Simulated assay, not measured.
Amino acid sequence: MGHPWVYSCLTELGVGLTREPGFHQFDVRGNAYGLLAAHPLTPLVSLHHIDHIDPIFPNITTTKEMQHFHAAEVDSQRILQQTICYNRQFSRTVSVSWGYAIQVYNKHIPLPDILPVPETFRQWKWGTVLAGVYTFNTIRFHPHPCHRPTIFFLVYLLVDAYVIFSCIQMQAPRRHCCDVLPSKSGDLLDIAIRECGEDELIHMNE
């Protein structure tokens, strides 16, 4: 939401207000991992107050971490969009945040339980009335590491071959589908992000 004084000035100039569904600013404090790894199904517009959040990527300084969003140069419309895969063979649930991180759970988790944003961050103090109020659903971030997923952060992108294959650039906001591919190596997890087929839903393999 813009500052009311700015809006008042624009109104006096005859500029109307256009409401864009899903438009919001990234404005939290502390550990922003939860919001980045499970970003709501809306385009990423801006990152505010970077100096008030913890480093986004491990072992990278604040001044360089914005440059580490290499995926924005390849597919900016889908940056941070969350995609969920289910791996039947190993009973895994894989959550991909395009350009940021992959979370791997060693069990099948229903889609409604994995979409809420883990509350790793803190709000700016707006008083007690809006405490804990967001425009998206949140979930408690489990304090014990054994109950959290294994996390893999983006290190680099290969222009001619991705570890995460992105074959088509799609318009956001729309949740995409993905497949866990047969791996060519036991040390790799190959994932293909793709446009969902007509009437296709993301579901667990029974």
Rank of each mutant, 00 (worst) to 15 (best):
M1G: 14
G2F: 10
P4K: 01
P4L: 00
P4Y: 04
V6A: 15
V6D: 13
Y7Q: 14
E12K: 13
G14M: 09
G16N: 12
L17I: 13
P21W: 08
G22K: 09
F26C: 08
D27L: 10
D27I: 06
G30W: 03
G34N: 06
P40K: 08
P40S: 06
L41P: 00
L41C: 12
P43K: 11
I50S: 13
I50G: 13
D51Q: 11
D51F: 14
D51L: 09
H52G: 02
P55D: 08
F57H: 02
I60R: 10
I60E: 11
T62Q: 14
T63Q: 15
T63C: 07
M66D: 04
M66E: 02
A71G: 04
A71T: 12
S76R: 10
I79W: 12
I79D: 04
I79G: 02
Q81W: 05
Q82C: 15
I84R: 05
R88P: 00
V94F: 03
V94C: 05
S95L: 14
S95E: 07
V96M: 04
S97A: 15
Y100C: 01
Y100P: 01
Q103D: 09
H108F: 10
I109H: 05
P110S: 14
D113C: 07
D113R: 14
D113G: 01
P116K: 10
P118E: 03
P118Y: 12
P118L: 11
E119H: 10
T120P: 00
T120Q: 10
F121R: 06
F121K: 07
R122T: 15
K125Y: 15
K125P: 02
W126G: 13
T128K: 08
T128F: 09
V129A: 05
V129T: 00
L130A: 06
A131G: 01
A131R: 14
G132E: 07
T135G: 09
T138W: 03
I139W: 05
F141C: 04
F141Q: 02
H142A: 10
P143W: 12
P143Q: 12
C146R: 15
C146H: 15
L154M: 09
V155A: 09
L157N: 13
D160L: 11
V163K: 08
V163Y: 07
I164W: 01
F165C: 07
S166D: 13
Q169I: 10
Q171D: 03
P173V: 02
H176S: 12
C178H: 01
D179G: 02
V180C: 06
L181I: 09
S185P: 02
G186F: 00
D187I: 06
D187A: 13
I193G: 05
E200Y: 01
I202P: 03
M204V: 14
